[in-house]
Amino acid sequence: MAQYIVKRIALAIITLFVVSTFTFFLMFLVPGGPFLSEKAPSPATLKALEEKYGLNLPVTQQYKNYMLRLLKGDLGTSLKQRGREVNNIIATRFPVSAKIGAVAILIAVTVGVTLGSIAALNRGKLLDSIIIFFSTCGIAVPGFVVCTVLMYILGLKLNLLPTFGLTSGRHYIMPVIALAFYPMSYISRLMRSCMLDVLNQDYMRTAKAKGLSQWKALFKHALRNAILPVVTYLGPLLAYTLTGSFIVEKIFTIPGLGDSFISSITGRDYPLIMGTTIFLAFLIITMNVIVDIIYKLVDPRIKLS
């Protein structure tokens, strides 16, 4: 196990290096710059700004400088939010996104697994069809439509929930639903097909022949086997959901990290692009390692190597 973790850390460092290098050079291939706006700055101002942030240097030199700072854990200073450290932006914005994301994942997994199992147990019956219908909708309908519909019905028409900000528990409801809808649908479909497969396995027949009740057989013998593919899906899902969704955060006016991802790119905020990308990559790698370890705990046949 220790050897496995050391190996994964080494691999993670290499991956992060490759990701940051690629992002850095790709970023400079995109035309435009951070200081261009509707009111173009004078050439003298532009020059002064570029000099201040070291953007006048050759790209390779800039790359070297950046990577050296990165080694110290410094992600640089934002070019758009003048004077704010990228580290600081991530540190304040990530918890906001992560909180909504965590609740959303919790709901997506519990509801998804439950609905998928119910559908499998009622295969071919009305309940199964209803669950399939809704989960297919959940996968097919784009996030912004879900957000808008929620906002229109719950916020505007029924006036039940606040439509922006994050100041109370009630503010969380709509963004969480919007964020959980797709993964929940995906998980319930995944769970349904896995459960159907597991229910036909010989060991389920053994469980019945032992005299176990249907529920006990289901919870002890079927669930743990059927949930494995969901665990696999959980790795990337965790990373993407915790870092926030641009659409959900934009629509519900939430100061999360998802918003920073996109606005950093549209604004050519080079250090913030690098910072958020590296952070996401780091999170994905970490979650995958955690998921691999969980996988090993759920299924003893898996060997970590």
Binding site: Q201, T206, A209, K210, G211, L212, N225
Partner: peptide, 30 residues
């Protein structure tokens, strides 16, 4: 009655045991 008064052994021992539980667990269960 099942597993208590009447027990059964199946054809394929490779698939009749649950892969994610120990042998001990599966014997003790019954």
């Amino acid at each position: 009655m099942r597993g208590n008064e009447i027990s059964i052994i199946f054809q394929d021992p490779m698939t009749s045991l649950n892969p994610v539980y120990t042998i001990g667990n599966q014997i003790e269960e019954v």
